[in-house]
Write a protein that binds this DNA or RNA. Sequence first.
DNA 1: CGCTCCTTTGATCAGAATCAAACAACGTGG
DNA 2: CCACGTTGTTTGATTCTGATCAAAGGAGCG
Lengths: 249, 249
Amino acid sequence: MTVKKRSQRVLSHHSPIFRRLKDLGPIDVDALNAVASLSGHEIEIPRGADFVTRGTVISHAFAIETGWAMRYLLTRDGRRQITSLVLPGDLVGYESALVGRAAHTVCALTNLKAFAFDASDLLDILYAHPSLMRILAWRQDSEITAMDESSLRLGRFSAEQRLAHFFADLWRRLRRVGHADDRGFDLPMTQSEISDALGLSLVHTNRRLQEFRRDGVLAIDNGRLRIGDAGRLLELASGRGAGAHALGA
Amino acid sequence: MTVKKRSQRVLSHHSPIFRRLKDLGPIDVDALNAVASLSGHEIEIPRGADFVTRGTVISHAFAIETGWAMRYLLTRDGRRQITSLVLPGDLVGYESALVGRAAHTVCALTNLKAFAFDASDLLDILYAHPSLMRILAWRQDSEITAMDESSLRLGRFSAEQRLAHFFADLWRRLRRVGHADDRGFDLPMTQSEISDALGLSLVHTNRRLQEFRRDGVLAIDNGRLRIGDAGRLLELASGRGAGAHALGA
DNA sequence: CGCTCCTTTGATCAGAATCAAACAACGTGG
DNA sequence: CCACGTTGTTTGATTCTGATCAAAGGAGCG
């Protein structure tokens, strides 16, 4: 892995990780200070690098500061499924602190800046501050909830719906952290990557995207997604029902 | 919801939850005792009942003792995606202890016996015993890992592979807890439910299952899945690759 | 006996994959 | 500065997996 290590230091107070922590409700100051005192180093990870690999013993975890990454799996014949996007403020590889090795493979979608810190330090802090452990559990559960949604998308939505749902979801996520406005957001993904997130073929993805463009729903150009018709987009994306009657439905 | 409450008591030492806890590595006796002293009541939940509903405020969580359940979502037009199976030894609704409300909807696939306990008691215990919180986080991460696998299945596997992978995975899970042997296991799911777990239509699922039967791979009769050719099954199921080169693959 | 739930069958249709190739943008080294 | 390789997007033609529609058997049950 080609990473550039930089200054040894502590987590910046401006790191998106703090914004995220505060989003999750009140934390006691002690816990926050403990996180702030985590020592580690800023690293840069080049696009395309697998910086965490499933099954390997890794000694540190990463807090993503800028850039996007993806969790993914490969089929035996080399096709890919992107299972989750990792955005600024997300933690990667922390599970190594719990289990000793990485449970996922994560690859940089863009050049990344991340804060790398010792996984065992993290474990210590989590033990010392149950409220942080609780927040970790909370976030993991959010991830599970998000993956439920993603399963519905993969299992039951048409290509058009999958795309709409995917972009709508990203839009929401990015607005929450100030990386998107009403008109759109920067989307550093190729159509091939989008396909691999949605379980579609590249060609089909391309055609549906062109349709969106023609219909004025949205258009991607130059790494930026522009929302043309938010109403229509959300309409297409909202394939999910309320959730009542289950068996036999 | 039609549930039958029974004796108010503490968690049985024979509950699958303990077996599961011990699987996850050494726990200090204190923590184990704390879990054992959780007070609650045994309940019976009838097949088809949604016993946890997303978004609702619930005061208790459930440890499944016997029977199967499912986490699921519905599309707006009433189709269903089963996102995860809940087996004996699994915890359901614990997230309400972290966040205050249920994050998932869970429905009984069979009649269930479960131990219902106060979510806030659980939270207390988790705070008092960080090692338990760690185990919770560990299990959540396992769930995420399992869902990654499920995304690959939904996004990139053929119907035949999905079925094989699904059954192989279930077989493994059930053997680990002594609910399956070399020849097969009890499968309390209708073909409709299997379809909804795999993102397939009922008709198509039925046809692929018949093919499996004809080819002697496996056969389902009377709620029991019999493995005919384990080698072939695992071969079909093993669509996943090692996981190296990511971008552009 | 008549439901209801589940499985099976047949026929048709369509969404999306696949194959093949051109085109466009970009960075690099000669 | 341009030829060239690489990466990403677009187009066209064709095939096929799996969805949908419709309905008939089976099995269990009150």
